[in-house]
Design a protein around this nucleic acid. Structure first.
Lengths: 292, 292
DNA sequence: TACATTTACGGTCTTCGTAATAATG
DNA sequence: CATTATTACGAAGACCGTAAATGTA
């Protein structure tokens, strides 16, 4: 028996008259009659007594009616829920550390402003981990700074991120319009841990320019770095976004290195077979539009 | 979308693998694939992510799964309930007064003995009312003493019922082996009300035999009649079944009238289009078997 | 290559319409 | 005779099978 049978049955119960039920369902009366007959045959019960051109619902009919109404109601609810999910399902978003700290909060809150019914869940971890979560559909997509490995990952460059040299306001560099690259070799560096994208960009760029450097302090977050730099324990090269506020307030100095740029790109990444829902695409569009 | 779609969907969720689901459903794998595709198309949501030969249930899939399981469960329950009702639905039984008081209790309790799951509801009223309730499917069938009117009522004679003359043990009739019909005309009669089947049988038989009679007391129940007769207030003609116990205990005397019988028939009656369930037929068979 | 899913296509059963028949008031 | 339900039958479509194609490990 199909939901259609139940639907017809309920219509007949509501009308207690097959002809009227057929009309309400915009179908022929014999089709209704047949559907009821099929139900009765299938369950081997009589659903209606037909006495003197009138229909009377039997005990079995009464019982079935309860179930049928419930099932049809559920089916309608499915429709509604699917529609809702189609337009506002949860977004499971991955972010690598720098992105998560300095880019995403702004984007997520802007998105939520315009899509209040869509929940956004963010997982922050290193690029490698984010990639794995995407490959196993534990995340819908990610915004990362590092490079992905799998050829099944689609990569959309989102925005460039510039690392900048920072020092304390009391440091000898403070006030210079630019620092000569060789000067860096004389400094103590406070750096992120191995495996960090920031660290990798810094190392790669230094190596590319034939510059050596001294590691004075290693830590896994930008807050500690800013504090240590401000305290004059050394200099660092971290995302300009991470020090924008402190540079403006004068707590730290951010300054360029002559003829040398620490650059990387933030990218939106997802599995090439991933089905992107409307809210997911909306979020991505918002990211692309708001790249600064 | 049909229940079949949901059934297939649930199987795929259970296996998280279309091929295995197809096997468990004893159907081809493409058919499963198609059912899922139809669901996804219909609701315009993706139910599974297909990443690297693996299936992952989406948020929408998760939601749908909950509904689908519920609906399928209900559908199974319908099956069970219908089966139960088929074999043990309620019996709505009508009985006219004498039948209800002196015949039915025995039959119903005998029936319940062997059909514990079948509920029996009895409505006791006069034949005319019982017939109306049957015509409007408020009763499944009836056992009545009177005659039905509608040509749509099927009538099965069930058992003869003999009315007997009763008097007090101190009455002048007491001890006689038979009473001469003419003697009746000298007695005071305690009778049932007009409209009663018992009264009608009595009146008809008396009239048929050219006998007149005196009405001393009218009441609508056999208990009062027995009490009044026992008190020597008159004689009566009522169902032998109603006085069997009192006659045996010597409280009353039941005796034949020479060459005269007060007879009527109890009948099983139902609408000719009435669908008789298994328990209903069982009850009728029990009635026919146990006719005394 | 081997395995899983999707696409293509065709046969069979279902569903529903029209028309005819039966039953009822 | 008008109204309602059932039966009969045929066309359109759904369902599911086989075969081939596609995509991955």
């Amino acid at each position: 028996m199909t939901l259609r049978h139940y639907q017809i049955f309920v219509a007949v119960c509501d009308a207690m008259n097959m002809t009227a039920a057929a009309e309400s369902l915009f179908m022929s009366q014999p089709a209704v009659s047949q559907a009821i007959a099929e139900l009765e045959k299938n369950y081997e019960v009589r659903l209606f007594e037909r006495l003197s051109r009138k229909l009377y619902l039997t005990e079995a009919g009464e019982k079935l009616l309860g179930y049928a109404r419930h099932m049809l109601r559920m089916n309608d609810d499915v429709e509604k829920d699917m529609k809702l999910l189609r337009e506002s399902g949860t977004i499971r978003l991955g972010a690598s550390v720098t992105v998560g700290a300095y880019v995403l909060p702004r984007l997520v809150s802007a998105f939520k402003e315009e899509n209040r019914r869509t929940a956004v869940r963010v997982v922050e971890d290193n690029t490698r981990q984010i990639e794995h979560l995407i490959m196993t559909d534990q995340l819908d997509f990610g915004i990362v700074e590092g490079d992905t490995v799998s050829p099944d990952i689609v990569v959309h460059p989102l925005m460039d991120d510039e690392l900048t040299l920072v020092c304390a306001r009391t440091h000898r560099f403070a006030g210079l319009s630019a620092v000569m690259p060789e000067e860096l070799e004389k400094e103590d560096f406070i750096v992120r841990e191995k495996g960090s994208g920031t660290r990798k960009t810094f190392e790669d760029t230094m190596a590319l320019n034939g510059l050596s450097w001294r590691e004075a302090w290693t830590c896994n977050n930008a807050d500690t770095i800013r504090a240590a730099v401000a305290a004059g324990l050394g200099v660092s090269v971290i995302s300009a976004r991470a020090v924008a506020r402190d540079a403006a307030s004068g707590l730290l100095c951010a300054l360029p290195v002559k003829a040398l740029q620490f650059r990387r790109t933030f990218k939106i990444v997802y599995h090439k077979n991933k089905f992107l829902t409307v809210p997911m695409r909306k979020f991505m569009e918002l990211c692309m539009k708001s790249r600064a």
